[in-house]
Design a binder for these strands. Structure first.
Lengths: 204, 204
DNA sequence: ATCACTACCTACATGGATGTTAATAGCGAT
DNA sequence: ATCGCTATTAACATCCATGTAGGTAGTGAT
């Protein structure tokens, strides 16, 4: 009675963004959803709702749902490679302490959600999206080698081994580190300490 | 002309399984799909098609799609804990060589798809399903400690660290090891060699 | 044989995610 | 102002996964 049968659904005023801005917001929202609620929560409706836009608008900007997902992967991979590049720069300039290096790699994989994203990509089978990482990884290997390789032959091989080792631990920790550390009664940065402690083995 | 308009879709003879057998087949099929095509491929229709059954039958056996997924998780987690228990037994009986121990853990995470499954679970947020692993992990810690701890105090702590380290590498390798090793020019069991080589550090 | 049980099926209903189309409305340029 | 451009929207159309209802057909027991 007091409520009219067909309330016009309270449409708020339309806000017009620049295309780049709209894409930025959408990707940020999608990333949040991916990290907090998992891959299946990254949907056109969910993303659109978060930034106050209909799903049709997202299709307009990204072409399709797959286009949005692809852009999301690209964006996060870009952040990851940036982080790795930054690590390489720091290594070349000054502090190459094992713990600092370890933290760089773990921070690249963990907090930004890159580790979870990489796992999603790997599970989905879209391995092409991981390809941009290659250059960044090699870059880091170069930087470490430049810094640490006082020892001559076989140095690059040992550095590559060290990077593989660090990366596996960092990704593993990003994905199942929480539960696993819980089971073993170990605290938050236990894995970082372990890795940092083992690093010198490779570089001496 | 030669083809009638409505071919009755060639329904083949109905095969009746025991419930346990039907569940077994369905779970095996679901696991195959998960490993080969990723989580989103694990659908009632896909699983049913593989074992020659309609999706309604799967709902009959598992109650719901979520029920099937839950059963799948349970099944794979059970296999994983079995593998870990087996590792513990081997450790207690005879060979405790670092490489053998490492292989056990890597084999538990990799080939059976347990690593990918755990990643899926972690990404989906269904952490309860990981809980059964706890006892198995602790079991392995006990067995290793029994075998290796000639050194007294702090031994358990170092063993726990070693297990965490091994597990992170094994899971990381199961998920993104392939691409990552490719980028670094390292061969198939490179990660295993590295881990096995580092293990003595913890146990001496 | 035939009967009870239930694994299995077909047919339909529903909801959510994705896509399409045509109209609307901000915003800069003229 | 008003005009062109296009970001944005509402309304519809489709597809697919899931779920429901009632009938069908193996299988073992009597």
């Amino acid at each position: 009675m007091s409520t009219p049968a067909n309330e016009p659904a309270a449409r708020l005023k339309r806000r017009r963004r620049l295309p780049e801005e709209a894409r930025r917001e959408a990707l940020a929202s999608a990333r949040r959803l991916l990290i907090e609620a998992g891959p299946k929560a990254v949907t056109l409706n969910a993303v659109g709702k978060q930034i106050g836009v209909t799903h049709a608008t997202l299709i307009h900007h990204f072409g399709s749902a797959a286009g949005l997902q692809s852009a999301l992967m690209g964006s996060m991979i870009a952040d990851l490679t940036d982080a790795l590049a930054e690590t390489a720069v720091q290594l070349r300039s000054d502090a190459g302490a094992p713990r600092a290096l370890t933290d760089s790699v773990f921070d690249a994989a963990g907090p930004g959600g890159a580790g979870r994203l990489a796992a999603w990509i790997a599970l989905s089978g879209d391995l092409e999206h991981l390809e941009p990482i290659r250059a960044a990884v090699i870059h880091v290997v170069d930087a470490i080698q430049e810094k640490f390789s006082d020892a001559g032959e076989g140095a690059r091989d040992r550095v590559a081994a060290a990077v593989l080792f660090m990366a596996l631990c960092a990704f593993g920790d990003a994905i199942i580190g929480g539960p696993l550390r819980g089971m073993l009664g170990r605290d938050e940065d236990s894995a970082r300490e372990i890795v940092a402690g083992l690093l010198p083995t490779f570089l001496a």
